[in-house]
Structures are given as C-alpha cells and as structure tokens.
Amino acid sequence: MISILFAVLTALSNGTASVLQRRAAADAPEEDALRLSLLRDLLRKGIWIGGIAMSAVAAVCQAVALATGPIAIVQPIFVIELPFTLLLGGLLFHGSFPRSVWLAVAAVAGGLSLFLLAAAPSGGDASVTTGFWPEALLVTGLFLAALLAVGLRVRGNARAATLGLAAACGYALTAATMKDAMARLDHGVGAFFTGWQLYATAAIGAGSLFVLQNALQAGSLAASQPMLSIGDALISTCYGVTLFSESLRTGWWLVPQLAALALVLAGCIGLSRSPLADGLAPRPDDRPRTDVPAAV
C-alpha cells in the first residue's frame, strides 16, 4: 500500500515537472536540439527550475515506492502521469475540458486498474543477480542508440515521440538501478554508497533528463508524453520480470490484461487528440516580447 501511494505521488510530481519544463523548453531555438546550449538557456528560466525541483520530489517518492514494492507495480502506475499532465497543462495554459477528455482520463485510469488487477504483479527479488546486469545494459544500450540515431534524422513530433521513448527507456533503467541500489541499504550505508548502482542511477537519470528536454523542445507534449508514460511502464515491467524475477498472471488472465492495455491506449490516443494537448503549447501572446526592455 505504501508503494502504491508513493508511486501515485511520483506520477503527480513528474506530471507537474513535465508541464513546467515543456513551458520553458517550448521557447528554445530548434538549433539547440541535443546541445548543451539548450540546458544553458533553460537554466535562466525560473519555471524550468521549478520543474526540476518537482523532478527531485518525484525521485524521492520513487525511491520509497521501489524500496517497498515490486517494480512491475510501481512503474505502470506512472501512466496516470499523462492525464494529470494534460489536465494540469490545460489549467495553466487556458485549455478547456470537454467531455471527451474526461472519458479518455477514465479510460486510462480504468485500464490501469484492470491491468494491475489482472496481472497481479507479485514476488520478486529485492536485488538483481550480478551476472544479469551486463546483458541488460548491453541490450538497453543498443536500443537507446537506435532510438537516438532515428531521433537525429527526423524532426517535429516524430523527433519528440522518438526521444520521448528514449527518455522512457532511460527512466525505466534508472528505476531498475535505483531499486537495486536501495536493496544495498540492507547491508549498511557503506554498501549503498560504494555500489555502482547509485552512481549509475544518477548518471542515467541525468542523461534521460537531457534527452527528455530535447523531446519536449522538438514537438508537442502530446507526441512525447504518451511515449514517455507508456514506454516507461512497459519497459519497467520487463525489467521487473527479467531482472527481479517478479511474476505476472498468465493463461486466461492475459485476455483482461490485453483488454486493459487497449483501454489505456485508447485513452492516451483520445488525450493526445484533445484540445488540451494543443493548449500546452505556448500561444504567441505568451512568448517573450523583444520590443520592450526586460524588467529589472
């Protein structure tokens, strides 16, 4: 129960961070894509700093959730980040709330609940067997390299979606290394700080954040956020099963699981097509003016 509570808090914090970071990154020049100059520009914006602060809150909540529950339960809950992000963005950027949006939100929430009930993730080890990490890191690295290569060749929403999925993969790997790092606390604080997992979590998380900023800058939030939310949930579940030996129901239980995924997908598509998604992009009147002096 504690893990579910903190997973929900993580999703809400991440959703808030995404909206604030999107608002800041939308004004950045396209030529800054995948360059450190993008981060230098964002560091000058208070709203982006606020988004980073919410990301830090989310990281703490996620660590507690992963330390107290299976990764296959914790990470899928993050799919609620998408409807929360769009609803919050609609409030901040003057969006409307038509009936179709609420139906899509209900589809995502209902689909998630059905999936967790049908799959019933359980069991699993607190830590990963050392020999499993090299293979997992190699496969993940190749997948990320392919996504980044495609992201550099496309533009607009295609780049946003591709980089959003790359960021999702990075965040899923971060969750796996974070859970493994938290397990080392059972052997003392010294073991926690001397394990490579802690520093891998920080490095991969920072890299994923950089990729996410470029996804947000490249196109609409509706293109990047579904890939981020759903990709994170699915890839993390794979890590839970393969690395932590967590189990999911099989047999006829696969039928409601697939139905649940279809329901979540339908809800996400509905949200991505809603006026809220367009409302997250700053309107021309929201962009900084250059014909007046800056306030001091």
Rank of each mutant, 00 (worst) to 15 (best):
A160P: 01
S247K: 15
L243C: 10
R249K: 07
W196I: 05
V101E: 01
L138W: 10
A200H: 07
I47G: 00
L87K: 10
A294I: 15
A26F: 08
L116H: 11
P226Y: 00
A119G: 09
S272Y: 01
G69D: 14
K179I: 03
A160K: 00
P256Q: 04
V241F: 12
L144G: 04
E30G: 07
A17R: 02
A106D: 04
L144R: 04
G50F: 00
R22C: 12
W253I: 05
S113M: 13
V79H: 04
L112I: 07
A262E: 13
S55G: 15
V60S: 09
L36Y: 02
G131Y: 07
L198E: 02
C238V: 15
L280F: 00
P284W: 10
W196K: 00
S229D: 10
A161T: 02
A202T: 06
R287L: 13
A206I: 11
L271W: 02
G188R: 11
V74E: 03
E246H: 11
V139C: 03
R44S: 13
D286M: 01
S18N: 15
V108M: 03
V241K: 12
A233Y: 04
V150L: 06
V241G: 07
S247W: 12
V8Q: 02
A24E: 06
L20A: 00
A56L: 15
M54H: 03
T162V: 08
L280S: 04
Y239W: 06
L144Y: 05
L87V: 12
V64Q: 11
M227I: 05
D27F: 06
A206Y: 11
G188H: 10
A277S: 01
V105Y: 06
R249T: 00
G164W: 04
P121K: 15
